[in-house]
Simulated scan of single mutants.
Amino acid sequence: MDYTIIDAHAHLWLRQDTEVNEQKIQTLDNGKSLFMGEIRQMLPPFMIDGRNTAEIFLSNMDYARVSAAVITQEYIDGLQNDYLWEVQHKYPDRFLCCGMVDVRKKGYLEHARALIEKGFKGIKLPANRFSLPGGRIFLTADEMMQMFKLMEEKGVFLSIDLEEGTSQVGEMKEIIGECPDLKIAVGHFGMVTYPDWQEQIKLARNKNVMIESGGITWLFNDEFYPFKGAVWAIREAASLVGMDKLMWGSDYPRTITAITYRMSYDFVLKSDLLDEEEKRKFLRSNAEKFYGFTDLVSLPYIKNMSE
């Protein structure tokens, strides 16, 4: 491997303490969390204090030779804007951190404006959480469209995870039509293991829309490593929109409760279904261009004691 790698979808938090649909998510111990009525292994068990910090991730990144990562957010982790702003300033050459607004509460347009003025280069929306007990939040609501136009004007990218299937695809098409210069990264590889996932992928036929694969190993967890179905899905997506439109993402740290961080990409490296240039685009150059990464660090290979 003679090229550096960029992770287009990862998470950091100091502590989970929030609610989604009136259900509690809260950090416990030994990597566990209370998650919507049950205890789940949210982190690897050696992360005993539940703190999913930049420093622990950097150790994983250095070992796996991942040069940089885009840090997204999710409502199940709570808003982490203050911590991520600290991370952005402390490690500007390794992380590109997204701010997040809570569209379930009034005034999120002004919150987005404040985050942009502070200096966040991306805003994350977990739109897969927009179906609420009181009704669905529409991506095309007036305040939402004002936010997207502000982001387009300020050159701030949108990182977004959609509900499985096509329920939000029409709304995304309207947003793309109204804000053609808004840069958009659609996460979770279009929820690839659900019906009609290809319709989310086809959004990348628009010039400023990309697809990232954060969570693809979770979605193919039943198949498990080396995730041949995931590679075939990458191959199919490339046939729909071109390999130039696809980016690798890990969905760290939740995915490494099942596999190591390095395993979340080396199934791509070891596959014979993709050639070297396709691997290079997927693992680095597409994200480098889309997010504007420069001066990526080159990380040496460190031999394992087991070798």
Rank of each mutant, 00 (worst) to 15 (best):
T166K: 10
S271R: 05
P180Q: 10
L219G: 08
N206Y: 15
E153K: 14
G165W: 08
W248Q: 00
Q16H: 13
E307W: 11
K289M: 12
L43V: 06
M147G: 08
I234H: 03
R65N: 07
Q198E: 15
D266V: 02
L269H: 05
Y301F: 14
A258F: 06
R40P: 03
D181G: 06
G31Q: 04
Y91Q: 05
K228A: 13
P126A: 13
H89Y: 03
S159N: 13
I48L: 04
Q23L: 11
E143Y: 14
N60P: 00
D295I: 01
K228M: 07
N21W: 15
I201L: 08
Q146E: 13
L96N: 11
E277T: 10
M305R: 11
I6M: 09
D275G: 06
V70Y: 00
E117D: 15
D244T: 04
H111S: 14
N128S: 12
M243L: 08
I56M: 11
A68N: 03
I302T: 14
F46H: 09
D142F: 12
R136D: 06
Q200I: 09
F293V: 06
Q41Y: 05
T166D: 10
E288D: 06
E55N: 08
E164K: 15
I25A: 04
L269V: 09
T72A: 13
D251Y: 01
H188P: 02
V156A: 08
L274Q: 10
M47C: 05
K90V: 10
A237W: 07
I39D: 03
L79A: 07
I216N: 02
R51G: 03
G242E: 06
F95M: 03
L125V: 15
G155S: 12
Q41C: 05
M172W: 00
K183W: 04
L274V: 12
E236V: 09
E152R: 12
D275A: 10
K124I: 05
M100V: 13
G99K: 01
M47H: 07
L162V: 08
V66H: 01
D62C: 07
E278L: 13
Q73H: 10
W232A: 07
S159I: 02
I256G: 00
G119E: 05
I256M: 02
L132I: 14
D29F: 09
Y265R: 04
G107V: 06
P300R: 01
F138G: 04
K207A: 15
E38H: 08
E164W: 07
E117W: 02
